[in-house]
Design a protein around this nucleic acid. Structure first.
Lengths: 121, 121
DNA sequence: CTGTATCCAACAGGATACTG
DNA sequence: CAGTATCCTGTTGGATACAG
């Protein structure tokens, strides 16, 4: 994503923010880390149905952009923890605001609103 | 993006926010509209190097998600304006926060930091 | 446990040409 | 003016298999 950030810098600060935080799972990851460090597996379960490959890439991008800190413990079996940096904690507050915004303004479909088609009767 | 929103609803509110606001140019568009309605052409110039196709799609998604309101005036030549809804105005404040966050925490490369390589001496 | 490598389908976004 | 249609390329992200 670093390239995306460089491109965004040519446009406007808001776009830079999107370049850093915009990927799927990225802000969710940050918000899950707001309560404290998590190991890779814990994080994957907490975030939801994200593949290891994608989560890894997003975490690497967040690390490059200074949002998360990755710590490897030289143990067997290996243990790796992720935690927010100062920048990450600030970003987490924005993530919270965005979550609240979506709860207020994005219409939630009813429980049985299965696409356009109702359940077969 | 509506499908993306539906999928995000299964995960968490933060992800819904990203589904709505996460595309390239989207939050920048919202922030440009914060100062008042703009016509399509004005908006395109204001946002930056975005193609008409992409801007159109993002605007349609934002309209579907209740962030912007599109008004067509039956004139020749045609005139179309875009303005923020209440949800859009709230989202714009978050966009501003995200922009400020990026200014504070995302390192700006120096003017002559051309990739990894310095200028030929 | 924490990833990486590979393959693959879907999507995003620019360029260009064209329409009402 | 405000798009749409088409073509094209690069990226995204899951699935699976494998590695240290």
């Amino acid at each position: 994503m670093r390239d995306a950030v460089r491109r965004a810098l040519e446009v406007c600060p808001v776009e830079v923010g999107i370049a850093v935080a915009g990927g799927d799972w990225k802000l969710t990851t940050v918000s899950k880390l707001a309560d404290g460090p998590l190991r890779f597996g814990e994080l994957q379960r907490a975030v939801g149905p994200v593949s290891a490959k994608t989560l890894t890439r997003q975490l690497r991008a967040l690390e490059t952009d200074g949002v998360v800190l990755r710590t490897v413990y030289p143990e067997v079996p290996p243990r790796v923890t992720y935690e927010l940096t100062e920048a990450g904690r600030e970003l987490a507050t924005i993530a919270t605001l965005l979550g609240r915004w979506s709860e207020r303004f994005v219409p939630r479909p009813g429980p049985d609103a299965v696409s356009e088609y109702g359940p077969a009767s």
